[in-house]
Amino acid sequence: MHPSEEFMNYYIKYEPKIRSYIQRLVFDSTDAEDIMQSTAMLLWKKHDQFKADQAFLPWAYKFAYNEIRNYYRKHEKSKKLLLDPDCIDQLADTSLKNSSQLEELKASLDDCLYKLDNSDRRLIEYRYCEDGKINDLAEKQKTTPNALSKALQKIRQKLHICVRSNQEHS
C-alpha cells in the first residue's frame, strides 16, 4: 500500500476521535470545526513523517493539541474562552489518557436515554432534537424557565451517572 493511502486510511478511521478530542476542549462549535480543518491540513502536510509502526492517534492528537493551544493563545484576550491554559493542559492530558473510556461512555448514551422517564426524555428531545427554547416550553407547561432548567440539569446528571454505572458493570 502506498504510504499516502495508508495515512488516508488511518485518517478516515480516526477522524471522529480527533474531532471529539477537539470538541471536548473548544466550546464554540464553529471554532472547533476551524481547528479540525487546520489539524486535518497539518496532518496531511506532515503525513510523510508518520511511521507505519507508530500509533496514529497519539501522533495525531499532538497536532490537534498544538492547534488548540494556538487557538487559546490567539484568543486569550478577545474571546470569552471559559478555561485557562493550565486547565486546558490538564484536560487535554486526561482526554488523551482516558480516550477509550470516554468513547465507551459515549457509546452507552443511547441505552441511558431509553432508561429515562418519559417526561425526562421528552425534555431532552425538546431541548436537543427540536432545538426548543426553555422559555417557550416553560410557558406551554405553565412552569418557570428556572424550574425547567433545573430539571434539564438533573437529567444531564442522571445520564452521566447512568453511563458511568453502565461502564462499571460492563
Binding site: S20, Q23, R24, S29, L91, T94, S95, N98, L102, L105, K106, L109, I124, R127, Y128, R156, L159, H160, V163, R164
Partner: peptide
C-alpha cells in the same frame, strides 16, 4: 469531558 461528550452527541 464526559459531560462535554454527552452534550456534543445530543447536539
Amino acid at each position: 469531558l464526559s459531560m462535554r461528550d454527552q452534550h456534543i452527541s445530543l447536539d
